[in-house]
Write a protein that binds this DNA or RNA. Structure first.
Length: 266
DNA sequence: AATGGGACCTGCGCGC
DNA sequence: TGCGCGCAGGTCCCAT
């Protein structure tokens, strides 16, 4: 968390609210989250710039600014953007034209803010695989056929496909009825087709509902996203499967929790 | 190429 | 009650 649907939701919220606004002041309360340039230069350079465009690539938010620079924001696990803000716990406060504040909160300080000349050149962006919604079925099928990796960690691999994290990987595989431990290349053509379809459906439905408010994720307004009620397996270990009434199981894969129904997912 | 582990962090829930 | 421990996961990095 947050993954593609949450970041996309925040992107759309930001487009409604802060597009065209000017950054009048930046207050840095914890410099650890500013990865480049130095916090001092970051703060001074942003002052007076207007937000011209707001994009998302994978789980990265990109704010294109009036002088050609871009502010990139990675929320990692506990990052939040809240408007109107002004919380005492914020790490960075962006004062905007109109007098209100956009807060960047981040309890665990994993989040990353960067001010860069060209966001396309940053290492993280260069390493990203295709966006799920830009990927054709033919390409997806071919990509899977080349991989021996287990399917669940593969879906979370940002160089393979961008934007899917631990929560949605589990949810997508449940709906596709595929065991998360299966080697990717062992999937049948039919399974690949279902996986492709469910990847798009789960992600787009999650976006429609404003993302999943698990842990710290909130929308720009501070309100929760509404997709949690559609979760079928994530965080449900030991509970009954909604489809077969069997028990949902939790296993570790690559140091991360994987949730699945051993009966429904083969 | 694939896989596993640790590092970065901090609040929370658990067991004792 | 209070304490210490492990866990949560996005990404990078190193080792095998």
């Amino acid at each position: 968390m947050p993954e593609l649907p949450e970041v996309e939701t925040i992107k759309r919220d930001l487009q409604e609210i802060i597009l065209g606004k000017k950054i009048t002041e930046v207050c840095v309360y914890n410099p650890a989250v500013i990865r480049e340039p130095s916090p001092d230069v970051f703060k001074k350079s942003l002052k007076g710039l207007v937000v011209k465009n707001i994009l998302r690539r994978g789980k990265l938010l990109i704010l294109e600014l009036s002088n050609g620079l871009s502010l990139t924001i990675h929320l990692k696990m506990t990052g939040q953007l809240v408007y109107p803000g002004g919380s005492k716990n914020s790490r960075v406060a962006f004062h905007l034209s109109g007098g209100k504040i956009l807060d960047f909160n981040d309890q665990r300080l994993f989040g990353e803010l960067r001010l860069v000349d060209d966001w396309r050149k940053i290492k993280f962006i260069r390493g990203l695989g295709p966006e799920p919604f830009d990927l054709t079925y033919a390409d997806f099928r071919d990509m899977l056929s080349k991989k021996k990796t287990k399917i669940k960690p593969l879906l979370m691999d940002q160089s393979f496909i961008s934007g899917i994290g631990n929560l949605y990987a589990s949810e997508i595989l449940f709906r596709a009825k595929i065991d998360p431990r299966r080697p990717a290349q062992s999937l049948t053509k039919a399974e690949k087709g279902v996986l492709y379809k469910e990847t798009r459906e789960v992600l787009s439905s999650a976006i429609v509902h404003g993302g999943s408010s698990i842990d710290d994720y909130v929308r720009l307004s501070g309100e929760p996203g509404g997709y949690v009620k559609f979760h079928r397996v994530y965080g449900r270990q030991g509970k009954l499967c909604f489809v077969c009434k069997g028990l949902i199981k939790k296993i570790a894969q690559g140091g991360r929790g994987t949730y699945f129904c051993p009966k429904c997912q083969r």
